[in-house]
Design a protein around this nucleic acid. Structure first.
Length: 326
DNA sequence: AAAGATATCAACCGCCTGAAC
DNA sequence: AGTTCAGGCGGTTGATATCTT
């Protein structure tokens, strides 16, 4: 018998998240950190399944997420990594820490796939290898691939050095050594498993979310790279200066007149909003978001440029920019 | 201006993996 | 060793926005 789905319970809400749900979730995670998702709906009173809470957090509310407007460099990285790793979006996302796997996946399916197709149709020289040529079975088949790869970077390297790829490659080292080297050099290897260290700055994201909502409600258009959630657009929940949320003198997040039209929160929600995170309601101070992840150029430098200790790859910036020339 | 087509993306679904018991 | 479960992942869907006719 299979395991029953976690979201089969009666009364579990589905569909778009509302701003108030977001705030409850963010405030709870601020207090307790991400993880133990099963406890989140129980402790917050959210009528969502744990999976939905986790997804909402990782794909939308998590700090440091950048939305929309993929840069040419990001496009190049995605195209290259997709050709190396296949549709392993989580692995690809680990190279673009500001992007979520869902975002990358969507962007690939809606933009890049079309661009590549068009480009190939035009007879351009850039053409990623078929997915089958970069499958994990190739990796497994490689004589040196039995080592444990601690990171996706290592997996990527193993693919590259596996020699089954059309990407340009120059290496004089054994594949296992190269993989370990790249794993060591990965700027994100550690951050992948330490997300708890940055959850306290999630106000940055919710602020941007709500900022987008506010701007969409006013005469000025929202910024292109920060779109309000559909839920925010239909639910005028909050009217506040999001920037004040991180200011000790910022004042209340939830003005009474702004929430007068809302259904009263459940006791659990009330407790979350008023007790566990007093700063959320009373202008408490929050951590500034951690310094943003390394610049894309440094990612690419690490990913594509060679260093003095290894002739790993012979990929240039120009190579990454190719997809933008479609 | 309206209707239909297409694009976008948030969220869901089901499977897989690894830890705990 | 087998079972259960939480968390993670990739594929897919469906609602909404935008474009085209």
């Amino acid at each position: 018998m299979g395991r029953p789905p976690c979201c089969d319970k009666v009364g579990i809400k589905k569909g778009p998240w509302t701003p108030e749900e977001d705030i409850i979730l963010v405030s709870y995670i601020q207090e307790h950190g991400p993880g133990n998702w099963r406890a989140v709906p129980i402790n917050t009173g959210l009528m969502r399944c744990s999976k939905s809470c986790r997804l909402r957090w990782t794909n939308y509310l998590r700090p440091g997420i950048r939305r929309g407007n993929f840069t040419p460099h990001e496009e190049g990285i995605i195209v290259h990594l997709q050709s190396l790793l296949g549709n392993r979006w989580a692995a690809i996302a680990s190279y673009l820490p500001q992007r979520t796997d869902n975002d990358i996946k969507n962007y690939w399916n809606t933009h890049l796939k079309k661009k590549l197709k068009k480009h190939q149709a035009m007879g351009a020289i850039f053409a990623p290898p078929p997915p089958s040529s970069s499958s994990s079975s190739d990796l497994a088949a490689h004589p040196s691939s039995s080592i444990v790869m601690p990171t996706t970077a290592a997996a990527a390297a193993a693919h590259v050095v596996g020699g089954d790829n059309s990407m340009l490659l120059v290496t004089h080292q054994r594949p296992a050594e190269v993989a370990q080297l790249i794993a060591r050099r990965s700027p994100f290897a550690a951050s992948d498993s330490s997300s708890t260290s940055s959850y306290a700055s999630s106000m940055d994201n919710i602020s941007r979310l709500l900022d987008g909502f506010m701007k969409s409600s006013s005469s000025s258009p929202p910024p292109q790279d920060v779109k309000p959630s559909p839920a925010a657009a239909i639910n005028p929940f909050l009217c506040f200066d999001p920037m004040s949320m991180s200011s000790a003198a910022g004042g209340g997040l939830l003005p009474a007149d702004a929430i007068s039209d809302l259904p009263p929160p459940t006791p659990q929600q009330q407790q979350v909003l008023t007790t566990t995170t007093p700063g959320l309601l009373h202008g408490g101070s929050y951590h500034e978001p951690p310094k943003q992840q390394p610049q894309l150029s440094s990612i690419e430098n690490w990913l594509f440029d060679e260093e003095e200790d290894a002739d790993l790859m012979d990929l240039s910036d120009g190579c990454c920019s190719v997809p933008m020339m479609f």
